[in-house]
Deep mutational scan, measured.
Amino acid sequence: DTINITLPDGKTLTLTVTPEFTVKELAEEIARRLGLSPEDIKDTHNGKTLDPSLTLAEYGITPGSTITLEIK
C-alpha cells in the first residue's frame, strides 16, 4: 500500500507502508530518503501534527492518503 508525502517544495514522494507503521517509522523512512534527520521532520494530516507513537491506522491514514511534510 502506498501513501503520498507532500514535500515543502510541492513535490510528492510516494512511500510503501502498512497501516501498522508508526508515525515515527514513517518519519525515519522519509528522513532516510531525503537525507535528513528524523527529528527534523514534522508530519501533518488534515491540519493536525501527528504523534510519533501512534500508527497510521490510528489516524485513519489509508492507501492513497496524503501527508504533508514540514521541515523543523
Score class of each variant (00 low, 15 high):
residue 20 E to H: 11
residue 23 V to I: 11
residue 70 E to F: 07
residue 39 E to D: 11
residue 10 G to K: 04
residue 39 E to C: 15
residue 9 D to N: 13
residue 26 L to C: 03
residue 60 G to I: 02
residue 5 I to T: 01
residue 50 L to M: 10
residue 18 T to A: 06
residue 37 S to K: 13
residue 51 D to S: 05
residue 39 E to R: 13
residue 19 P to M: 09
residue 48 K to N: 11
residue 66 T to I: 08
residue 24 K to A: 11
residue 58 E to S: 08
residue 72 K to V: 13
residue 65 S to M: 14
residue 65 S to E: 05
residue 34 L to C: 07
residue 18 T to L: 05
residue 31 A to H: 05
residue 10 G to I: 01
residue 22 T to A: 01
residue 47 G to N: 07
residue 35 G to K: 06
residue 14 T to E: 06
residue 25 E to K: 08
residue 15 L to D: 00
residue 65 S to H: 06
residue 67 I to N: 01
residue 19 P to I: 06
residue 25 E to G: 04
residue 25 E to I: 04
residue 28 E to V: 09
residue 62 T to R: 05
residue 26 L to V: 04
residue 33 R to T: 07
residue 6 T to A: 14
residue 71 I to M: 08
residue 6 T to G: 07
residue 55 T to F: 02
residue 54 L to Y: 07
residue 17 V to H: 03
residue 27 A to D: 04
residue 13 L to S: 02
residue 31 A to K: 04
residue 27 A to K: 14
residue 54 L to V: 09
residue 60 G to N: 04
residue 53 S to W: 06
residue 38 P to D: 04
residue 45 H to N: 09
residue 60 G to M: 03
residue 69 L to C: 11
residue 24 K to T: 04
residue 2 T to C: 07
residue 52 P to T: 13
residue 54 L to Q: 07
residue 19 P to R: 07
residue 32 R to A: 07
residue 67 I to E: 00
residue 62 T to C: 12
residue 51 D to E: 06
residue 9 D to Y: 07
residue 27 A to S: 11
residue 40 D to S: 13
residue 24 K to V: 04
residue 32 R to Q: 07
residue 53 S to M: 10
residue 7 L to A: 04
residue 6 T to Q: 14
residue 16 T to S: 12
residue 9 D to T: 09
residue 60 G to E: 03
residue 15 L to N: 00
residue 43 D to W: 15
residue 57 A to D: 05
residue 63 P to W: 03
residue 1 D to Y: 15
residue 30 I to S: 00
residue 61 I to Q: 01
residue 72 K to E: 12
residue 33 R to E: 06
residue 60 G to Y: 02
residue 11 K to A: 10
residue 39 E to A: 14
residue 12 T to G: 04
residue 29 E to N: 04
residue 15 L to W: 03
residue 72 K to C: 14
residue 10 G to R: 03
residue 43 D to Y: 15
residue 68 T to F: 14
residue 48 K to G: 10
residue 25 E to S: 06
residue 66 T to L: 05
residue 72 K to H: 13
residue 33 R to L: 12
residue 70 E to R: 06
residue 25 E to M: 14
residue 54 L to M: 15
residue 32 R to P: 00
residue 15 L to T: 01
residue 6 T to D: 07
residue 33 R to I: 12
residue 32 R to F: 09
residue 34 L to S: 04
residue 42 K to P: 13
residue 63 P to K: 03
residue 14 T to I: 11
residue 20 E to A: 11
residue 28 E to L: 10
residue 59 Y to Q: 14
residue 17 V to C: 05
residue 21 F to Y: 13
residue 60 G to A: 03
residue 23 V to M: 11
residue 63 P to V: 06
residue 55 T to L: 04
residue 69 L to I: 15
residue 19 P to F: 06
residue 67 I to Q: 01
residue 37 S to I: 10
residue 27 A to I: 15
residue 9 D to Q: 05
residue 63 P to D: 10
residue 6 T to M: 14
residue 60 G to D: 04
residue 61 I to S: 01
residue 24 K to F: 09
residue 68 T to P: 04
residue 57 A to E: 09
residue 17 V to P: 01
residue 69 L to Y: 02
residue 20 E to T: 13
residue 23 V to W: 15
residue 45 H to G: 09
residue 48 K to P: 06
residue 17 V to N: 00
residue 39 E to H: 15
residue 1 D to N: 13
residue 4 N to P: 01
residue 14 T to G: 03
residue 15 L to A: 01
residue 51 D to W: 05
residue 27 A to M: 15
residue 19 P to N: 05
residue 8 P to F: 06
residue 57 A to Q: 10
residue 61 I to T: 01
residue 38 P to G: 06
residue 57 A to I: 10
residue 53 S to L: 10
residue 53 S to P: 02
residue 3 I to L: 08
residue 4 N to M: 09
residue 46 N to E: 08
residue 35 G to E: 04
residue 58 E to V: 03
residue 64 G to M: 02
residue 59 Y to E: 05
residue 12 T to N: 07
residue 67 I to W: 06
residue 3 I to D: 01
residue 6 T to L: 15
residue 19 P to V: 06
residue 40 D to A: 12
residue 56 L to M: 03
residue 68 T to W: 13
residue 62 T to V: 12
residue 2 T to G: 05
residue 31 A to T: 05
residue 69 L to W: 05
residue 51 D to A: 04
residue 64 G to W: 02
residue 36 L to H: 06
residue 25 E to L: 06
residue 35 G to N: 09
residue 7 L to R: 02
residue 72 K to L: 13
residue 70 E to I: 13
residue 69 L to V: 15
residue 10 G to M: 03
residue 15 L to P: 00
residue 4 N to W: 12
residue 30 I to N: 00
residue 38 P to S: 08
residue 35 G to P: 01
residue 72 K to P: 09
residue 60 G to F: 04
residue 36 L to T: 09
residue 4 N to Q: 08
residue 5 I to P: 02
residue 20 E to C: 08
residue 14 T to N: 06
residue 66 T to W: 09
residue 21 F to L: 12
residue 66 T to E: 07
residue 25 E to H: 09
residue 5 I to V: 13
residue 65 S to W: 05
residue 38 P to I: 15
residue 28 E to M: 12
residue 45 H to A: 12
residue 15 L to V: 12
residue 2 T to H: 10
residue 53 S to D: 09
residue 2 T to I: 10
residue 33 R to W: 15
residue 3 I to K: 01
residue 43 D to F: 15
residue 3 I to W: 01
residue 10 G to T: 02
residue 17 V to R: 01
residue 36 L to R: 10
residue 72 K to D: 13
residue 50 L to P: 05
residue 50 L to E: 02
residue 10 G to Q: 04
residue 24 K to C: 08
residue 21 F to R: 04
residue 30 I to L: 11
residue 3 I to G: 01
residue 34 L to H: 01
residue 42 K to Q: 12
residue 37 S to W: 10
residue 34 L to N: 00
residue 16 T to P: 10
residue 14 T to D: 02
residue 71 I to C: 14
residue 29 E to L: 12
residue 3 I to M: 03
residue 54 L to E: 03
residue 50 L to A: 04
residue 19 P to G: 03
residue 64 G to P: 02
residue 6 T to N: 14
residue 63 P to M: 08
residue 7 L to T: 07
residue 64 G to Y: 02
residue 30 I to G: 00
residue 44 T to H: 11
residue 66 T to K: 05
residue 49 T to G: 07
residue 18 T to F: 08
residue 3 I to Y: 03
residue 9 D to C: 15
residue 64 G to N: 05
residue 70 E to S: 07
residue 56 L to G: 00
residue 51 D to Q: 04
residue 13 L to F: 14
residue 50 L to H: 04
residue 3 I to V: 07
residue 48 K to F: 12
residue 22 T to V: 01
residue 1 D to F: 15
residue 38 P to V: 15
residue 36 L to S: 06
residue 8 P to K: 09
residue 26 L to W: 02
residue 31 A to E: 03
residue 12 T to P: 02
residue 14 T to A: 07
residue 8 P to D: 06
residue 52 P to I: 09
residue 58 E to G: 03
residue 41 I to L: 13
residue 32 R to C: 09
residue 40 D to Q: 12
residue 22 T to F: 01
residue 23 V to K: 00
residue 66 T to V: 08
residue 19 P to H: 05
residue 18 T to G: 09
residue 29 E to R: 04
residue 10 G to P: 01
residue 36 L to V: 14
residue 39 E to W: 06
residue 23 V to D: 00
residue 32 R to I: 06
residue 24 K to H: 07
residue 43 D to P: 15
residue 21 F to T: 15
residue 55 T to I: 02
residue 43 D to C: 15
residue 44 T to P: 14
residue 27 A to P: 00
residue 15 L to H: 00
residue 38 P to R: 08
residue 69 L to E: 00
residue 10 G to N: 05
residue 23 V to E: 00
residue 14 T to K: 10
residue 45 H to C: 14
residue 67 I to K: 00
residue 11 K to N: 11
residue 56 L to I: 07
residue 72 K to W: 14
residue 51 D to Y: 04
residue 69 L to G: 00
residue 6 T to W: 11
residue 20 E to K: 09
residue 24 K to M: 09
residue 34 L to R: 01
residue 47 G to F: 15
residue 40 D to Y: 15
residue 48 K to Y: 07
residue 24 K to E: 03
residue 32 R to T: 06
residue 49 T to E: 11
residue 54 L to S: 11
residue 22 T to H: 01
residue 37 S to E: 10
residue 42 K to V: 15
residue 40 D to M: 13
residue 46 N to P: 07
residue 51 D to G: 03
residue 61 I to C: 06
residue 29 E to T: 09
residue 44 T to C: 15
residue 58 E to I: 03
residue 37 S to V: 11
residue 1 D to K: 06
residue 53 S to F: 08
residue 61 I to A: 02
residue 9 D to F: 09
residue 46 N to W: 14
residue 30 I to F: 04
residue 64 G to H: 03
residue 17 V to M: 07
residue 57 A to K: 12
residue 18 T to Q: 05
residue 36 L to G: 06
residue 62 T to Q: 10
